[in-house]
Write a protein that binds this DNA or RNA. Sequence first.
DNA 1: CGAATTTATTGATCGAGAGCAAAGACCTAA
DNA 2: TTAGGTCTTTGCTCTCGATCAATAAATTCG
Lengths: 233, 233
Amino acid sequence: MPATAAAIVANRAFPAPLPAAIREEEDVLNPAAAVARMGTVVSFTRNAEIFGEDEPADHVFVVLSGVVRICKLLGDGRRQIETFCLKGDAFGWETAERTRFSAEAVSECRLARVKRSLLFSRATDDSALARAIWNLTFTELHRAQDHLLLLGRKTAQERVATFLLDLARRSSPVDLSEVHLPMSRQDIADYLGLTIETVSRTLTQLEGSAAIALPSSRCIVLRDRNALRRLDS
Amino acid sequence: MPATAAAIVANRAFPAPLPAAIREEEDVLNPAAAVARMGTVVSFTRNAEIFGEDEPADHVFVVLSGVVRICKLLGDGRRQIETFCLKGDAFGWETAERTRFSAEAVSECRLARVKRSLLFSRATDDSALARAIWNLTFTELHRAQDHLLLLGRKTAQERVATFLLDLARRSSPVDLSEVHLPMSRQDIADYLGLTIETVSRTLTQLEGSAAIALPSSRCIVLRDRNALRRLDS
DNA sequence: CGAATTTATTGATCGAGAGCAAAGACCTAA
DNA sequence: TTAGGTCTTTGCTCTCGATCAATAAATTCG
């Protein structure tokens, strides 16, 4: 479906000249380019809050660089990270007027910020844009559905293996075996529905079974993708 | 957001006369009515497969009556129910050409079946329809995100309480305290990421703490909604 | 209607992952 | 460079929910 969205975006005629800062990065975020192009660039430092839970939902964002986590908190400290947004991902879609989760910068990041009202009013006259928005939303739904299966039915090893393969696939177009982890163990744990200790132990186990190597805590080498895929099932 | 979708639907001008069988039920499924109206009625018996995993995705469905489960299987027997679709819910949205899960009738049910190609080609010229489709998709995303939090971070009691309140809310517009469970314990377990035994035990516990009553296995009386809401948090 | 079969409940035990604690690795700053 | 953080790993114990097993209730069918 990235292909479909990209095609739609490519076929659009753009009325206004592109802001230079965005145009130069256009190639790297095809599916969301039509949306990003309508926005302005904003930057956030590590751990900065982009928006909080239950705030007015006025903007949609597209990641230009860096990583963002989308999370929900439960009364007590418990936190669930719904998804990590990487370069080219869009977030902040809402039908209601208030946000249902918070968004925070995992690493330094640059985002394109687009006014929701502008986006949706343009989409009314521009069916290609409407379709692009639908595709982006749908991609999110797919991700959430896969995440659901992982949280409901997979073991710790399966969860970690799935996570690593997914991150590797999304981080780099080529199948590089060395993967950089932009997020902390706590972030990974809150994404996978585990504790930091279990994430750490599981990584050690996978290293023991030669599926991965851990040259440093934020760098993982996928040594045996098939072993991981077997766990991913 | 049902209000938004309903408003959009109400404002549409419909070119073709409505099939009588669908028109008579129109009032009960406002948000999805615009979609349902374009389809034909099909019926399924209990446990019948509506479509399987990885089949051509040619149709979108709207539930007219009965309940449908959307599920995914993991190599071995493990099953995750992504969602239960009740009257007025739409399912079968895909961007790819193949389905990513299966859909089965939980109870006898009647559905409106709509050709995807027709739906999307009409949406190109009809921005209100496009918006209605986006809203329906987005409602699914919301549901999946709440489900994610439940599976990742909630205890068995919290999961069951959340499920009961959600089902009660969706089953009936008025706050009826008696809720009929259309699905088996196995279905509930596979939705909540638990086992049938744990679901059963948890219901017994909730009965013990006077939060609910269980006159029969498929009928639940919500005796203390606040106690349940406290668990739902 | 009662026998057969499926579905739900309850009990007893087990184990994956949580929780707690301590040690080790890694940053950052002075 | 060292001192003071933070983040990660590892060990030990405990708990919640899974698993195995046996009834009990509900449904189906002859």
